[in-house]
Amino acid sequence: MNKNSIANTTTSASAGNINKSWVCEAIRKINADYNRSSDTHLIRVELPCFDDITLYLKDESTHPSGSLKHRLARSLFLYGLCNGYIHEDTTIVESSSGSTAISEAYFARLLNLRFIAVVPETTAKEKLDKIRFYGGECHKVPGKDIYTEATRLAGELNGHYMDQFTYAERATDWRGNNNIAESIFHQMGKESHPIPDWVVMSAGTGGTSATIGRYIRLNPEFYHRTRLCVVDPENSVFYPYFQNRNPNLTSEHGSRIEGIGRPRVEPSFQPDVIDRMLSIPDAASIATIRWLEGILGRKCGGSTGTNVYGALQLMQEMQHTGTSGSVVSLICDSGERYLDSYYDDKWVSKQGLDLDPYLQQLRTICS
């Protein structure tokens, strides 16, 4: 190959007008944002009724964009940038019930990119307001149409569909790099029972449960002791899929517990890294966050209720078998986003939910 042909090859490889300086600066900004952020707290929950069994909640609501999804959004942006999907004029599109869209809007604003969230019509107003606060646009559609509409919009605008439900489990570094799993086990290091018996996590994309499950298996000292339990709300197909492995399962109804549960089996959901699943009634999830407010002194989102109700079931099982140890779960986001739903008695009644049996059960646990 002569000198001219080498020059032509180089020119051809640079086609597409990719602004490498902008990409490098975008990655620097995301890494700088990460560097400014301290890790989230791991809260020890005082429940004296459980003798030598301790519940810990990792408070993901303290991220800059207010939820666990801040980690996912950061990973998805880096994934898109490093794969060449995102450029300085790319419109970012996502299908989301709220929290992921809020976090992605945060990062889109950081990079001065247009962001459109395709959201179910039932998404809480507080979440929509937060997306708009970060400069995002909200495009409401029926819940069953969010995937196809996000794909259509991205194609029409020559944008990039982030597709959290496909890429969540592969965009996150599950081996470490201070991911949520590594952080949990590091923060547990000086506790009375430093290696948890259970980590309890609800699933939306399945990305976080995949990260935690893989990390546990990567480290033999944890794998011998720690099990991963994924809790699932009503109207979600993850729980039956875990039982029968039918990838074609669908549900006609969306989850009332925003951010978790899906009407179809998502590519990011990895059942083989999960040790156990529990199906949690929606009324139990909502009752639990109201009960938990009296213990923590603040409101949490509905998925936190799903997590904690499942964790309490496991702690009761440990108690019945005389097992000492620890259980770790997550506060996924703040309850301030759900004042018009989970904390509104009229909304609860309209949904046909009766919280009283579960509230009585929860009060009895630690009476």
Rank of each mutant, 00 (worst) to 15 (best):
A284V: 03
Q316M: 09
M318L: 12
I289K: 04
S279T: 10
T288K: 14
I280P: 08
V273N: 07
W291M: 11
Q316N: 10
K299Q: 05
Q270F: 13
G301F: 09
W291A: 10
R264I: 02
E293H: 11
T304Y: 00
T306A: 09
P281W: 00
R262F: 10
M315P: 07
I257S: 01
W291Q: 11
I260D: 01
R276V: 02
D282S: 12
R256L: 11
M315Y: 09
G294V: 03
E293K: 15
G297D: 04
I274N: 05
G301N: 08
G259N: 14
R262K: 15
D282T: 15
G254M: 14
D272W: 14
Q270V: 15
L278H: 10
G305T: 01
A287I: 08
E258M: 04
G305H: 01
A283N: 10
S303M: 00
V265N: 06
S279C: 12
T321Q: 15
G294Q: 09
G302V: 05
L314K: 05
G302W: 03
G310W: 02
K299R: 12
P271W: 03
I289L: 12
G294F: 07
F269K: 01
Q270E: 15
C300H: 08
D272S: 13
F269L: 00
R276E: 09
G310F: 02
P281T: 01
I289N: 03
R298K: 07
S285D: 06
G259K: 15
L278S: 10
